[in-house]
Amino acid sequence: MKLYDPHLTPILRWRRAGAAWLLSAAALMPSAASAQYIMEFAQTYAAPTSNFISNTFLNQEALINATRPDAPRAAAKAQPALAPPQVERSAAELAQAAPAAQRARLEKIYLQLMPGYQQLERKLGWPAEDVAGAVVALLAGNYMAMTGTEPSDEAVSAAGHQLRASAQLQGLLARLNATDRRRLYEQCAMLGTFMALAHRTSQQQPANVVANLRHAARENLRAVLGPAADGLRFSAQGMQVR
């Protein structure tokens, strides 16, 4: 089962919205027609996270442990460097989830989401190109789509600081080469933003469409957190996995 939009126009417009984590800064919103199209794929396709995300960067236990109050803390230091941007490659890899005839269109959509995510980084007070923040964006976007709720900016910002300070997470990231850290950053940012946007467009959709989107988001979270995905929560202290 794969998530793609065979009709979505690649032109997305910016506008200011309310307090939701994705949309509280200058944010991505589709046109009314595109909003309808973005949910049409959810009636047929689920959205497994990319093979690179699910197989390369984290094991489930490490990420879950990083959310615990007693998790070992990393010493304050510069984060490992990333390779130069490769957004075209990252978007193309994510687009492999679509049938071949639709990949170019989906790749364009992912490319257009990256500037919005980088504005979000600045809004939340995260360092630029912070891998921990992008991981949080992936989790938060799918959490929104799975639960139909929107964690506050404060909760998402705290979760980014929480993962950045995790000794276990930083140890895992340090073992990736600079190119894979770049791929991880860009793909998590793109897919998390995409799922948050899909959640936003679902609010006026029929119940069966919303149910399919929630199933897709749950499968994404389970690829990263395993069975504990259903216990993911956001609060002023950051993320918790119950």
Results as ranks from 00 to 15, higher is better:
5 D>R: 01
6 P>A: 05
12 L>I: 12
15 R>Y: 09
16 R>V: 00
18 G>A: 14
19 A>S: 14
21 W>S: 03
27 A>M: 08
29 M>Y: 10
32 A>N: 10
34 S>I: 00
44 T>S: 12
44 T>D: 12
48 P>Y: 00
58 L>W: 08
59 N>D: 15
73 R>K: 15
74 A>C: 08
75 A>N: 12
77 K>C: 15
82 L>G: 07
89 R>C: 03
93 E>T: 03
100 A>I: 08
102 Q>K: 04
104 A>G: 00
106 L>D: 05
106 L>N: 01
108 K>A: 14
108 K>P: 00
115 P>N: 08
116 G>M: 08
124 L>M: 15
126 W>C: 02
126 W>I: 01
133 G>S: 10
134 A>S: 15
135 V>F: 06
136 V>N: 01
140 A>Y: 13
141 G>N: 07
141 G>C: 09
143 Y>L: 09
147 T>C: 08
147 T>D: 07
156 V>N: 02
162 Q>T: 06
171 G>W: 02
171 G>H: 07
173 L>N: 02
176 L>T: 04
181 R>G: 02
185 Y>P: 01
186 E>R: 04
204 Q>E: 09
215 H>F: 14
216 A>E: 10
222 R>G: 02
223 A>M: 10
228 A>G: 01
230 D>P: 08
230 D>E: 15
232 L>W: 01
233 R>P: 12
236 A>F: 06
236 A>P: 03
